[in-house]
Amino acid sequence: MNLDLIELVSIAAALSAILMAGSTHLSMNIALYSLQTFLLSLATYSLAGLRAESHFIWVALAIVVLKALGIPLFLHWIMVKIGVNSDPGTTLAPPLAMHCCVLLMGLSYFLAQSLPSSSLEGHSWANATAAISLLLSGLILMLTRRIALSQIIGFLVIENGIYLFALTQTSGMPLVVEMGVLLDVLVGVMISGLLVFRIQRSFEHIDVTQLTELRD
């Protein structure tokens, strides 16, 4: 088996998500997210050539600008503002969460095998594995973290997984839809970032495990 560039890139993105689950430094996680998104835009760019769809180039460019640069910078700004840089994690310690992610990647192997095959360019088990693994790693990241900012990052990783899946397993979405989704994500992150900022101001912490007292 020989992997082509797209497969290599998407697997590298999945690996970066696994490393994110093990890192307790928020700045590290933001940087890894940025790298991961950049890798996805690279995959999009090379698919543009292979499938001869020129609008993928614009999508790739938008991803780089908005998701690989814009969102990380914004998150970094929030992080500096609230003065928190490490997330100790909840009951499942980050190292174990990372090992869980590796095992889930193995599970994604199985899931990817059961997908219907197609002759579509970029539609391969490696890409499907990477996409499902990204999605699951994002979930693990959201599940095992304590700081609200990490939840945002986890959500973004899930979004990346979904994007990769849509990109490789289908024939791609129209430019308008892509842009709409991107905008949605951007606005979502903005709002939740500001919310985190507000939570920090009113509760003096952003520990989501302690938000249970708000249930009434």
Partner: peptide, 13 residues
Amino acid sequence: PDFIAYALTMGLL
């Protein structure tokens, strides 16, 4: 253990 976890991750991968 956090550091050693990376070694195990590499082994697992």
